[in-house]
C-alpha cells in the first residue's frame, strides 16, 4: 500500500472537527477494544487531529505531526509508531527469524514463515480472513509490520503454502519515513 508514497501523493491537508474527532475515537475503540484505557493518552481531548488525504483514497490521521493511523476504506489501521506504543491491543502474529529480511523489504508473508517453530499463530479459533494483524518477529519486542490476512489463521496452519499475509505497512517504508514539516 505504501510501496510508493511521496509528498506529491498528498492531495489535501485539513484539521478535523472536534465532533468528528470524537466519532473517530469511538470508532477506533470499537475496532480495538483494548485501546480504551489509553485512548485519551493517544489522542488527548484538546489535541488537534489532522487529516491528510492522499492518492488512492488513502487518508492519514495525524496528531502533533505524527501519523497515528490511516484508512483506505472504512477500516482504521494503526501506524507502526502507534503500535509500538501499545502493542497489546492488536491481533498479532509472529514470523520466524528467516522472514524478517524479506518483510522489511516489503514482501508479503508466506505461510511457512508463519508456521515454522520460531513463528507464532494464535490458537483456534484464530483470526478471520481479511482482518488486519500486527506482525512481530522471533526474539524481538517490537512489531515490524502490519498486514492483512489473505486466509484465516486456521487455513494458514492447514494449507501452509503461498501468501498468508498481505503487506500494508512495514518498518522502513515511505510511510514510516513520512514526516510533516
Amino acid at each position: 500500500m505504501f510501496k510508493k508514497f511521496t509528498k506529491d501523493d498528498i492531495h489535501s491537508r485539513s484539521n478535523v472537527k472536534s465532533s468528528v474527532q470524537r466519532t473517530l475515537k469511538t470508532k477506533l475503540v470499537n475496532q480495538y477494544p483494548k485501546l480504551e484505557p489509553v485512548i485519551d493518552e493517544l489522542i488527548p481531548k484538546k489535541s488537534q487531529v489532522e487529516i491528510i488525504k492522499c492518492e488512492d483514497k488513502i487518508q492519514l490521521y495525524t496528531v502533533n505531526g505524527e501519523v497515528l493511523f490511516f484508512q483506505q476504506f472504512d477500516e482504521l489501521i494503526p501506524s507502526l509508531r502507534l503500535v509500538h506504543k501499545f502493542p497489546e491491543a492488536y491481533p498479532t502474529v509472529q514470523v520466524d527469524r528467516g522472514a524478517i529480511k524479506f518483510v522489511l523489504s516489503g514482501a508479503n508473508i508466506m505461510c511457512p514463515g508463519l508456521t515454522s517453530p520460531g513463528a507464532k499463530l494464535p490458537d483456534a479459533p484464530g483470526f478471520e480472513k481479511d482482518s488486519v494483524v500486527i506482525i512481530k518477529a522471533e526474539n524481538k519486542d517490537s512489531a515490524l509490520a502490519i498486514g492483512r490476512l489473505l486466509m484465516s489463521t486456521d487455513d494458514i496452519k492447514s494449507i501452509n503454502k503461498g501468501h498468508g499475509v498481505e503487506m500494508i505497512h512495514h518498518l522502513g517504508d515511505p510511510l514510516w519515513d513520512f514526516t510533516l514539516e
Partner: peptide
C-alpha cells in the same frame, strides 16, 4: 496500563533490535 516509550535508532530510525537488518 499506559503507553510505552519506544526508542528509535538515530541512524536507521528502526527500533534498535532491527538495526542488524538495515546494513
Amino acid at each position: 496500563m499506559s503507553l510505552r516509550e519506544v526508542v528509535y535508532c538515530g541512524v536507521c530510525s528502526y527500533p534498535p533490535e532491527y538495526c542488524e537488518f538495515t546494513g
